[in-house]
Design a protein around this nucleic acid. Structure first.
Lengths: 216, 216, 216, 216
DNA sequence: TATGAATGAGAATTCATTCAT
DNA sequence: TATGAATGAATTCTCATTCAT
C-alpha cells in the first residue's frame, strides 16, 4: 500500500518515537555486549536498521546515548519491582520472593548486569549527570523496611537489620554469581549455568538470606 | 654509584624482567581504570615510562597483554589467600576471618574488581585461552570444605553447605557493594565508602554468613 | 556557475562514483610506482585529494583496493583489445598489428607492467579472490586462433601453432624488454628507450613472430 | 665437543664468511618472496637463525642488503652461463641449448625472476649504485654474436640479427611465461606449470627462436 | 524525519634501526 | 663475532562525529 498523502503530524511523531525506541534497544544490546568503550556507533545504527546520523539527531552523542540506555534500564527494572506485591505475603515468604525475583530478573536481563558494570567503571558519572537519578531509587528499600519491621514484630525476624544492607546483599548474591559466571566456570571447571546449578544457587541464596534474618 | 663495568647477562635479564613487570603494572592500572576497550596502549607506555614498542615486543598485542594482567591479578590474590592460616582458627572465627580478608583485599585492590568485570564482559575469553586457568582455582575452596566439615562435626555449623556456593556468596557480598558503590551512592544519596559505612558493611556481612552457617 | 539548488540523489551518486574513480586512479599510480608493499595509503589519499578514511569507506583495506586496481587495469586493456579489428586484416598483417599494439600499449601504460609484477609476486592471490577473473580472459586468444587458422588455410602460416603460446610469446617479447629496461640498460650500458632503440625492438619482434609463423 | 681454546683468527674469519652467506641466502629468499618493500628484516634474521643486529653489522642497511643479494644473484647466473660450452655445438644446436638453459635456470631459480622484478620496480637503482654492474654483463652476448656469425657464414642463419635483441627475446619468452604463470593460470583456467605444459612451452620457444633465425 | 558522503583525530601495530654490552 | 633490549617514526586502520541535502 503506497502512501498517497503526507503523514499527519501525529503519525510522524509516532514514527519518531518508534525510531528512538529502536535505537535505544539497539544501543542497549551493543553496550551490554561490548561495554561503553567497546561499543560502536556504526554497529548500533546497523542493529537498529537506521542511519547513524539519526542517532546523533536524537541522542546528541555516545555518552548521552549511554546515559539514556542506563536510565531506561533502571526504569525497566523499577517497573517490575513495582509490580511485586511483597506486602501481601508473610515476611519470610516475602523475602524468599524477593530473592527469587532478583535472581530471575538478572537471568532474564543479563544486559542489566553489564550495563551496571559499565556504569560503575565510569564511576557512575552518567547517573550523576542524570536529573532522574533519584527516581531510580528502588521502591524495594521501603518495602523491605516494612517487611523487616513486620517480621521483627511477629517475633520471627531478628532486629537491627538495615534494609539497604539487606537489599545490597540480596542483589550481590545473584549478581556476582551471574556476572562472573564465565570466569567462575572457567576456573572451577564446572558449568554454573546448567538448570541444576541454577536451582542449587537459588536454594542456597534463600537459605543464606533467611538463615540470617530468621530468629533461630 | 656509577657503573664501571658492563652488566652481566644475568643483570640484563633482570632488566628485561623489570621492564615486563613495569609494563604489567602500568597495564593493570590502565585496564582497571578504563576497561579493555577504553584502555590505551599509549597511556600504558607512558605510565610505564617505557617505549610503546616494547609492550608489543614482550606481550604481542593488547589482548595478550590483558590476559597477562589478568593472570597476574589472579596470582596475586591467590598468593594472599595461601597465606591465610584459617585452619588454625575455630570454624566460626575462620569464616569471619575469610569474610574480612575478602573485604579488605577488594578494598585494597579495587583494580581486581574492574579487571574481573572486564574479563567477564568478554566472556572470560582471556581466561579460556590461558593455559594457567586451572592454576587460578582458589585454594580457599578446599580450606572452606575443611572448615565447614569441622564446624559440622563439632555441632556448631549446619550441614549440607556447598563450599563453592559459600565462597561465591562471601565474595559476592563484598563485590557488589564495592563494585557498584558509585551507582549505589548516587541512587541512595548516601556515601557508602565512609569509614562508618564500611564498618557497618563488614559487620553485616559477617552476620549474614554466620547467621546462615551457625546451627542456631 | 554557482549551485543554487540542492544536488539531486542522482547527482550525489555521481559524486560517489567520481570519488571512487579518483581513488582508483591514484591507487593505480601509487601501486605501479611502489608495488603493493611499498605503496602508502597516505600517499594514495593525497594523490586523490581525498580523505584517507574515504578509501577505507569504499574499498575496505589495502588488499581489496589493490584488487580493485588490478581488475580495473584488466578491464582497461581488454577494452582496447576489443577495439582491435584484426580479422579485417590479412593474417600476417594482423599478427604484425598485434605485436605493435601490445608494444604500444605497454609503452603507453607502464603501470600495467608493474601492477602485473606485483600481482604475480603475490601469486595472483588478488585475482583468485576476484569473482571477475574469468572476465579478464583476453578476447585476443580466440581472435588469434582464427587468424592462425586463416593463415594456415591460405598456405602462408605453418600449422600446429597454439594460440595461447603465441599470445604469451608476443606479450613476453615486449614485456621483458620494457619491464626490465632499467636493469638491461644498466648492464649493457646502452639506452634501450631511445626512439631508435624502440624502433629496432619493434622490428625485431615482428621479425621473430613472423619468422616463426610464416611457412618459409 | 666443547671448545677449550680460543678460535684462531682464520677460523673466526671462516665463521664470519659463513654468517654472511647464511644472511645472504635468507635475504634472497625473503626478498624473492615479498619484494623489497614487503621484506622484513626480522624475518630475514629468523630465516638465517642469526641476530638481526648482525645483518646491520655486515650489510649496513636493508637497501645495501638488497643490493648485495642482487649482485649475488647475477654472479650465480653468470657463473652458470660461463659453464655453457655453446661454441662446441653447431649453431642451431647452440641456440636450442641456450633456450633450454634459460628456461631451466628460471625454473630452478624462481627467486631470480622476482628479484629482477623488484630491481626494476626501483628502476635498477641498486645496480646503478653497484660498482660491479658491468661485471654483470652476460658473457652470452659475445657467445651469441659468434654463434650467429658462424650460422650466417655456413648459410643456415639469416643475417642482420642483433645478438642483444635475440638474447632479450630468448629471456623474455621464458620470463613472461614463468613470472606471470599465476596470473595466466588464473585467467586462462589452465595449469601452466604441469609437466606437459612445460614441455610444450619449451618446444614452442625453440620453434620460435629457430623459426626466426634459420634461413628457411 | 531520514540518509549517504565525508572527515580529523586517534589508536593499534609495524618496522628499520640503534644501544649497550 | 654476536646478541637481547630498546626506540622513534611511520603505517594501516578505526571511530565518533559532521556535512549537505
Amino acid at each position: 500500500m503506497t502512501r498517497d498523502t503526507a503523514p499527519a503530524t501525529e503519525e510522524r511523531q509516532r514514527d519518531a518515537d518508534r525510531s528512538q525506541g529502536t535505537i535505544l534497544a539497539a544501543a542497549r544490546d551493543e553496550f551490554a555486549e561490548h561495554g561503553l568503550g567497546g561499543a560502536r556507533m556504526d554497529r548500533i545504527a546497523e542493529r537498529a536498521g537506521l542511519n547513524k546520523r539519526l542517532i546523533y539527531y536524537y541522542f546528541e552523542d555516545k555518552e548521552k546515548l549511554f546515559q539514556a540506555v542506563l536510565e531506561q534500564a533502571y526504569r525497566d527494572i523499577r517497573e517490575e519491582e513495582h509490580k511485586l506485591r511483597l506486602l501481601d505475603l508473610k515476611p519470610a515468604d516475602a523475602l524468599r520472593r524477593l530473592v527469587e525475583f532478583t535472581w530471575n530478573y538478572y537471568l532474564a536481563h543479563p544486559e542489566f548486569l553489564t550495563l551496571l558494570n559499565s556504569a560503575n567503571l565510569h564511576r557512575a558519572r552518567h547517573l550523576q549527570e542524570s536529573k532522574r537519578a533519584r527516581e531510580m531509587n528502588s521502591p524495594l528499600i521501603e518495602m523491605l523496611a516494612e517487611i523487616l519491621e513486620r517480621g521483627r514484630k511477629d517475633g520471627s525476624f531478628r532486629g537491627g537489620v538495615d534494609p539497604l544492607q539487606l537489599y545490597v546483599s540480596i542483589a550481590g548474591l545473584s549478581y556476582f554469581y551471574l556476572s562472573n559466571s564465565h570466569t567462575l566456570s572457567a576456573i572451577f571447571g564446572r558449568d554454573l549455568l546448567s538448570a541444576k546449578a541454577k536451582n542449587e544457587r537459588l536454594t542456597h541464596m534463600c537459605d543464606v538470606i533467611l538463615g540470617y534474618v530468621l530468629r533461630n
